[in-house]
Design a protein around this nucleic acid. Structure first.
Lengths: 190, 190
DNA sequence: GTCTATAATTCGATAGAC
DNA sequence: GTCTATCGAATTATAGAC
């Protein structure tokens, strides 16, 4: 694939990423992605042979983005507790988006979980990445076999915070819940 | 409306309720509801003049169901703490459904929150009912102004538990999280 | 009240010229 | 590689006979 082709492909993925997040996967049409990316509709099938394949590319892109985010976090923060704080802070940093559209990981999984099991399995890899990474931090804190559950529990609390604050468009609640998660992390070390 | 007409209307709502939960609102077509309810497709518009109106009827039906559930709970349990336990237990009682399709309140709000604000506002009334009721129980426990936040916090934890256990189809995690919520309720009274 | 037939639109996907 | 034109299927919704 040429440089131009790669640029076009990335532009499509970027436009689709935003639309799938804001409108949902099934409610986003190829025409809308075409308009948003500036690529004629008929030309899509040169880059992606189906809508499902486009979603898979979007998911891969989100996973790659998260991988870089976590690597950066590892470089900037040495303490496992600090690193777990940063995961909770993601919700506050992305508060505007979370309040309006919910968590991009959670809402996508919820949508695909209804009728598109295969696509959901891929979307779940976004959770895997985060759960595995948090589990490692809890392991480093000496939590042993309990680490997996603690990692899932932390993400569950954040998902619940994202859901309720999205339902009520309540920024204050989101911030209080994130603080609650941090207090819970503190309590684990005592 | 005749008795027959009312029966037909209820059959449509019941079929739509299940399909909207299992497949999502936007991914469910009138044809599917027609097949499931045994009512010919063209006859739908005698009972509901649009798909949105059908969803509103489904939401009203769910709210009514929840109202009865909470009334029954009030009759059977006098202690506010016991009553709050029962709200958490809903997830365990409905574990099969939650694992396969997520929380019917949460997933519907997440879907409608993307592009159908008006419908979402109605769906949010399901949360209102539950939050208000839990708030009353916390008030009865003497939690005062904090009660509203505690009610939202409890529901956020349950939503997170539903989301993660749905993502991973993990019944054990769901049960552990519900137990965690109950332990949190206990800790509030000490 | 009930049902058939179909309108009007939009969707994902394809064919084929350049 | 790029783009236009369009297909076939599915969708919500309507018209009108009975």
């Amino acid at each position: 694939m040429s440089t131009k082709g790669k640029q076009n492909r990335e532009r499509i993925v970027e436009a689709a990423d935003n639309l799938f997040y804001h409108k949902g996967f099934n409610q986003t049409s190829f025409s809308e992605v075409a308009d948003a990316s500036g690529i004629p509709k008929g030309n899509f099938y040169y880059y992606f042979k189906s809508k499902d394949e486009l979603l898979n590319a979007v998911i891969d892109s989100r996973i790659e983005l998260f991988r870089n985010l976590l690597s950066e976090c590892e470089a900037n923060y040495q303490q496992p507790l600090e690193r777990l704080y940063r995961v909770a802070d993601i919700l506050v940093n992305e508060a505007d988006n979370v309040l309006h559209h919910g968590c991009p990981m959670g809402t996508l999984n919820a949508e695909l979980g209804k009728t598109q099991e295969e696509l959901k399995a891929h979307a779940t890899q976004m959770f895997d990445l985060l759960v595995d990474w948090c589990e490692q931090q809890f392991m480093a804190l000496g939590k042993g076999e309990e680490s997996r559950f603690l990692a899932m529990h932390q993400l569950a609390m954040l998902q619940g915070a994202a859901m309720l604050s999205h339902v009520y468009n309540d920024r204050t609640f989101l911030e209080k819940e994130v603080q609650t998660v941090k207090s819970w992390l503190d309590s684990l070390l005592q």
